[in-house]
């Protein structure tokens, strides 16, 4: 039933083959093959617990997979940790691993990518530059927060989500991975994020999008991959599918 169609390696920005991951006795996914085309929006859908987030985390270096190979930009086994993934140009909006509550908005936006001034052998934070750029980044994406020096703890769920999207989108990455970016957002914020994803695509940035909203997926993506119970079961072009077909693929009723 699966219609996994292979593309030339040069066309894929991120791909994997035979990838497996388990946590103790729990198998998150097994023998997964997946490809995201350069310059496209690639969606991954599936029911809760299907293994989508874990797959993403393996692809961007957060988890080490048990077996299989990963390719990024034509290179094999590219990252041993998230830092390398970020340095190679992958930014990720994680589902639960988003912001540090005790840090400010600006500190979160520049976390692990802080702007420093060199003073002799020392590198000191340029806090003013980070605050200024943080303000600019937020206002470009129409994100409302009371202040960039506010601790993230006091922000609403939607504001936090918006900030972590802003961090991923605002850094000039080649590939932006978003795990349910609009899950906590209101109607207007969702529209903003969708516009942002289109914009990224127009600029040639590849996007991997995980979502439970099939309409959104069909609107935004070029290719859709379907996971069910730890397996990659199907992939379809978004233009060639219907909502009903997606429901059937996800639930296994097809």
């Amino acid at each position: 039933m699966s219609t996994v169609n292979h593309i030339a390696p040069s066309e894929a920005i991120l791909a994997c083959q035979g990838l497996s991951k388990h946590f103790g006795g729990i198998r998150a996914f097994t023998d997964v093959g997946f490809q995201a085309r350069r310059g496209e929006v690639t969606a991954v859908i599936g029911d809760n617990g299907a293994g989508k987030s874990t797959l993403i985390r393996c692809l961007v270096g957060v988890h080490v997979p048990d077996g299989g190979t990963i390719y990024f930009d034509g290179r094999q086994q590219p990252f041993s940790n998230p830092d390398e993934a970020r340095k190679s140009g992958i930014e990720t909006v994680h589902q639960n691993l988003a912001l540090i509550d005790e840090l400010t908005v600006a500190q979160n936006l520049f976390l692990n990518r802080e702007i420093v001034r060199r003073i002799g052998p020392f590198a000191l934070l340029d806090r003013k530059a980070m605050k200024d750029q943080a303000r600019a980044m937020l206002s470009r994406l129409s994100i409302n927060v009371p202040s960039v020096t506010q601790r993230v703890r006091r922000l609403s769920g939607g504001q936090r989500q918006a900030i972590s999207i802003c961090r991923a989108a605002g850094s000039g990455a080649k590939l932006v991975v978003m795990d349910e970016p609009t899950a906590a957002l209101g109607v207007q914020e969702t529209a903003n994020v969708e516009a942002l994803i289109r914009k990224l695509r127009e600029q040639g940035v590849s996007v991997i999008l995980i979502s439970h909203n099939f309409d959104q997926v069909r609107r935004l993506s070029d290719q859709i991959w379907v996971m069910r119970a730890g397996k990659m079961v199907a992939t379809v072009r978004s233009s060639e599918t219907t909502g009903n077909e997606l429901v059937a693929l996800v639930t296994g009723a097809a």
Binding site: R57, N81, D83, A85, K87, L97, L111
Partner: peptide, 12 residues
């Protein structure tokens, strides 16, 4: 604050 989130962002 949140070690897991920090490490997902590439902090060692």
């Amino acid at each position: 604050g949140q070690a897991e989130s920090a490490s997902a962002l590439g902090i060692r």
